[in-house]
Design a protein around this nucleic acid. Structure first.
Length: 419
RNA sequence: GCCCCCAUCGACUAGCGGUCCAGGUCACGGCCCUUUCAAGGCCGUAGCGCGGGUUCGAAUCCCGCUGGGGGCACCA
């Protein structure tokens, strides 16, 4: 039987990276096994629901390429069904009314156990199980009731979720058994922690898929990175495409210990994926990114700048700071300028023919020789005057792309500022 | 407090009793390349939490401890 799994976020805000991790593992499992991956919004807590969240979660999943099967379902839509099931339990005597709410009687002896897909056998003493509320006094089912009922309704065969749900599992198993429903198999994924070993939160940096997107990370990198948090193929292979991940993903290689989110490694992976992109693709993504971030820069120049930046930046977010000089004035630090060098550079570049990367390089190299300066000594003031920074794309390419007049203009201004 | 889960380099991990004086990747350090910054190449530092067992033999199995995390809601 093909597995049916689900990702069931609650719409309380942006999709948290931990949620992405859970969604990814479910998705990889479903795709690898040829099963189904469903998306269900757990919105029984109407009080905490954020209006935009439902759409944002879907948008994030689409961006990441985690496509789901069938229609998105909403927990609240199944409210009536849940109520009816709860009523049935009351009639059968396994549940009872308590101040308007319906609670289920939990056993006090023995233990509830299951063979966790990734942790092996877990036993939970029943005397620690409280009589869980199935339906609130206002008629809305609780998460711990609606969730298993829906898993049953949807024919979910495998529940893969964060290990913070371990203590909910015995309750849900008891509920399903009382209902006479089949049990899915449960697997509890490892938690993702911040650098300090605490649960990943705001103060560690970006925590939502949206934030990573805004910082210029691309889905391939994020997916590859997250897959490696709690799963490995052979311990040696690090870089894997989405297809390779799907092909290689198996539950028996999923680990159970918590993993610290390593932003540096993500950045490295992102840079790697960015560098491997075909230039046209890179340009398209960069353009889309810049537009999303509110930069309305000339498309042609952005495209032509791709070869200058692709090897150099690890996130798209670095582009404005790195190549922004191509689109607007710069404010160089006068301390880093050098009037004599700039005067000679202006003279040289006025006459340079052809005004191409090669021509410019040749001209400036002979300039540095004339001035008896090391290349770096001669080029740095020019770089600063032209790009406004000590760090920039290749100088000659940058000058060619900027154009002769704008370059000369900046050098003139640099001379004035230096003097 | 009670219950549950987890435990290999700073980080992610490989290792499922001998082939491990523990391998890969990021980070870090050094060197090379070099117009800056990256990228790239080469080299290197660094780890089985502790204590008991089991066994001819343990990072690998068992127990305890310690440490970390999670849960104990009419939140999800």
């Amino acid at each position: 039987m093909d597995p049916i799994v689900r990702f069931a976020p609650s719409p309380t805000g942006f999709l948290h990276i931990g949620g992405v991790h859970t969604a990814l593992f479910n998705w990889l499992y479903a795709r690898h096994e040829g099963g189904e991956f469903r998306l269900r919004i757990e919105n029984t807590d109407t009080g905490r629901e954020v209006a935009e969240a439902t759409e944002q979660i879907q948008e994030s999943l689409r961006w990441l390429g985690l496509d789901w099967d069938g229609e998105v379902t909403f927990q609240l839509d199944r409210m009536e069904h849940c109520r009816a099931e709860a009523q049935r339990l009351v009639e059968e005597g396994t549940a009872y009314e308590d101040e308007g709410a319906i609670r289920m009687r939990m056993p006090n002896e023995g233990s509830t156990a299951w063979d966790d897909l990734i942790r092996g056998r877990i036993e939970y003493p029943n005397d620690k199980l409280e009589d869980v509320v199935l339906v609130r006094a206002d008629g809305r089912p609780t998460y711990n009731f609606a969730s298993p009922v829906e898993d049953w309704l949807d024919g979910i065969t495998h529940v893969l979720r964060g290990d913070d749900h371990i203590s909910n599992t015995p309750k849900q198993i008891q509920i399903l058994e009382a209902l006479g429903a089949p049990l899915p198999q449960y697997g509890h994924l490892n938690q993702i922690l911040g650098e300090d070993g605490k649960k990943l939160s705001k103060r560690h940096g970006a925590t939502s898929a949206e934030e990573f997107r805004a910082q210029g990370y691309i889905p391939e990198a994020l997916v590859n990175f997250l897959a490696l948090l709690g799963w490995s193929y052979d311990g040696e292979t690090t870089v894997m495409s989405r297809e390779e991940l799907v092909e290689r993903f198996t539950l028996d290689r999923v680990g159970s210990s918590p993993a610290v989110f390593d932003f540096k490694k993500l950045e490295w992976l992102n840079g790697l994926y960015l560098r491997e992109l075909p230039p046209d693709d890179y340009a398209d993504r960069l353009l889309t990114y810049l537009r999303e971030q509110g930069f309305e820069w000339d498309e042609e120049i952005v495209r032509r700048s791709v070869p200058l930046v692709q090897e150099k930046i690890a996130t798209l977010g670095e582009y404005p700071g790195f190549a922004g000089f191509l689109f607007g004035d710069v404010e160089p630090d006068p301390e880093l300028l050098d009037a004599r060098v700039l005067e000679e550079a202006e003279r040289t570049l006025t006459e340079t023919e052809p005004f191409t990367t090669e021509g410019i390089e040749e001209a400036l190299r002979s300039l540095s020789e004339q001035l008896e300066l090391k290349p770096r000594e001669a080029f740095q003031p020019i770089r600063v005057a032209v790009t406004g920074s000590k760090v920039s794309p290749g100088l000659f390419e940058s000058i060619e792309l900027l154009g002769r007049e704008p370059t000369l203009e900046r050098i003139r201004r640099g001379r004035a500022a230096a003097a």
